[in-house]
Measured scan of single mutants.
Amino acid sequence: MALNTPQITPTKKITVRAIGEELPRGDYQRCPQCDMLFSLPEINSHQSAYCPRCQAKIRDGRDWSLTRLAAMAFTMLLLMPFAWGEPLLHIWLLGIRIDANVMQGIWQMTKQGDAITGSMVFFCVIGAPLILVTSIAYLWFGNRLGMNLRPVLLMLERLKEWVMLDIYLVGIGVASIKVQDYAHIQAGVGLFSFVALVILTTVTLSHLNVEELWERFYPQRPATRRDEKLRVCLGCHFTGYPDQRGRCPRCHIPLRLRRRHSLQKCWAALLASIVLLLPANLLPISIIYLNGGRQEDTILSGIMSLASSNIAVAGIVFIASILVPFTKVIVMFTLLLSIHFKCQQGLRTRILLLRMVTWIGRWSMLDLFVISLTMSLINRDQILAFTMGPAAFYFGAAVILTILAVEWLDSRLLWDAHESGNARFDD
């Protein structure tokens, strides 16, 4: 018995066209964080690309023209004298008006014999932002004059995390709450300039795509075929072959399989920071003279006294001054041990922890910024005066060393310790 099946006739004509040209192939790229070699397709503007294995951002879609970056830099340069030299806060102490600005706080630190601690604050609040705007201006002028731009481009990517104007702005709020127990506070004209400078700096850093600047100024022929001998440069993120001198053909720094002496430098910085954190938390970090009496505060006791007036601000200072430094030390110690013992479990967790400490590390400088600003506000000789204690130097040095330890660690070593050939990683 035959089955009668109805015929289905399409209502619209289906047209099949042959592909007349070869589909576009992607360029081969190595991930600078996990060293995976993959094919990167062509990316349009405002599109980002991520590593298929570790999800690290390979290409950032946010990109401004150099002219727009230069305009932002010149605007920031105009704001800087007002943000640093004009009063941020006014207080009335014992019937006398006192003005506080950024430069005055750094000068008070240096004047009291601790120039190293003052230079830490100076670099993060004044030096690094000033280098940022002058570097962008150098790129703008240098591109037109045919100057060598490689050193500036190499420095810009590392400079971003040292620009800490946003953290200093939080420190202004913390210092205001600490001082309000002794005097009446009012915002100064410099505060508005400083807030504007923070906003412009944040926007500029978020749109400063150094890798795209490398592509514009020093374009290189990408690798179009897969080759395990391809290496990625950690300076400019170019994937290719080393030249005859073993250097990256684009930025001219040595092109090595792994960062040289990464573990040794990381261990040295980490152990030194552990040693410095002990006096930083045991010795007094601030000293207040009130009517001839002397009151010393460690980091913890200062947080407890701050909690009596504002528990939320005390929580912020606790996280930045105690929780973050010790968390960074514990995480980095764990990561280094996992590399030495070739741990194969929990790779995803370790990668996330490394990215976390990379982002939060700079916030530990908050305590030094609060001390710097408070020193310029309260300084009335023996009637009422505020000065920093010996722990300030140890704390600042420990924070900087932990930042350097994270920067010096080559994250690809975590993958080397893991089993080879993993296309995915999980716990």
Rank of each mutant, 00 (worst) to 15 (best):
L165R: 02
E22Q: 10
R59L: 10
G113C: 09
G127D: 03
W84C: 08
R412I: 00
P10D: 08
I339N: 10
L290I: 12
V189N: 14
I330W: 15
L78E: 01
W107Y: 10
I383D: 00
Q220F: 12
T358M: 13
S273C: 13
R247Y: 13
G389A: 08
H46E: 06
T201F: 12
D63Y: 12
M103N: 03
D166C: 15
G113A: 06
F122R: 06
I136V: 09
K229Q: 14
L353H: 09
S273W: 02
P87F: 09
D60T: 08
S372F: 04
E296M: 15
F333D: 07
V317S: 00
I299W: 14
T110K: 15
I287D: 04
W107R: 14
S48L: 12
V195M: 13
L413C: 09
R225F: 14
A83R: 01
N44P: 02
K111T: 09
I136M: 11
H237M: 14
I339Y: 13
G171S: 15
E212V: 15
L409V: 09
W267Y: 15
L213W: 10
G171M: 03
L271H: 08
I167N: 03
Q55Y: 06
T239D: 06
D367S: 00
L270Y: 03
T117E: 10
A49K: 07
K13M: 03
P254Y: 05
I316D: 01
H261Q: 10
A398F: 02
Y168N: 11
S262G: 11
L156E: 08
F393A: 11
I360V: 10
C248H: 00
P279H: 05
M80K: 04
D227Y: 14
L93C: 01
L154Q: 02
E212P: 14
V195G: 10
C251F: 00
C266R: 01
G26K: 09
T334R: 14
D27T: 09
G361T: 12
V331P: 04
M388D: 06
A183R: 00
W363G: 05
S301L: 03
I311G: 15
R226K: 13
V275P: 02
V203P: 15
I319D: 14
A405N: 03
R380H: 03
Q220L: 14
G190C: 03
L139T: 05
H207Y: 15
F123Y: 07
L208A: 13
F141Y: 01
A70P: 07
I378E: 00
W359L: 11
L94W: 02
N101G: 05
S364P: 00
P325D: 09
H184T: 03
R362V: 04
S286F: 03
A128D: 02
S48W: 15
V170I: 06
L404F: 07
Q55V: 08
V275Q: 11
A392S: 07
Y138I: 08
A83Q: 03
I371F: 13
A18W: 08
G292E: 02
N422M: 05
A187K: 14
I403M: 13
A83G: 05
H46R: 05
A320S: 12
P390C: 09
A187T: 12
G240K: 11
I378A: 01
D427R: 13
P284I: 03
T117K: 06
A392R: 00
F369G: 04
A417L: 10
G240I: 10
C34W: 00
A100D: 04
A56V: 07
I253G: 03
A71D: 01
I287Y: 04
A268I: 04
D181N: 02
P279E: 15
I43Y: 10
I285S: 01
L213M: 15
Y289E: 01
E215G: 14
L336M: 09
I299H: 00
S176C: 12
L89R: 03
L354H: 08
P279R: 07
P87G: 03
D297A: 08
L409R: 02
A137G: 13
N379T: 02
Y218F: 05
W140V: 15
W162I: 02
A183S: 08
T201Y: 09
L154T: 07
L130S: 14
D427E: 12
G346K: 15
K342V: 14
Q29K: 11
R250C: 14
N422A: 15
S176H: 06
I116Q: 15
L191F: 12
S45G: 07
Q29D: 06
Y241S: 14
A49M: 08
I299Q: 04
L165K: 09
A398P: 04
P41I: 08
S308M: 15
W64S: 10
Q220E: 12
W408S: 05
T201M: 12
I106M: 07
F341M: 11
Y289R: 03
L230M: 14
I172T: 07
D166A: 15
A280W: 04
G188R: 11
A272M: 03
L156C: 10
I199F: 14
I316H: 02
T358I: 12
F393W: 06
R158D: 12
G389V: 00
G188D: 10
T9P: 11
G85A: 04
S376F: 02
Y218R: 14
I199N: 08
Q7W: 05
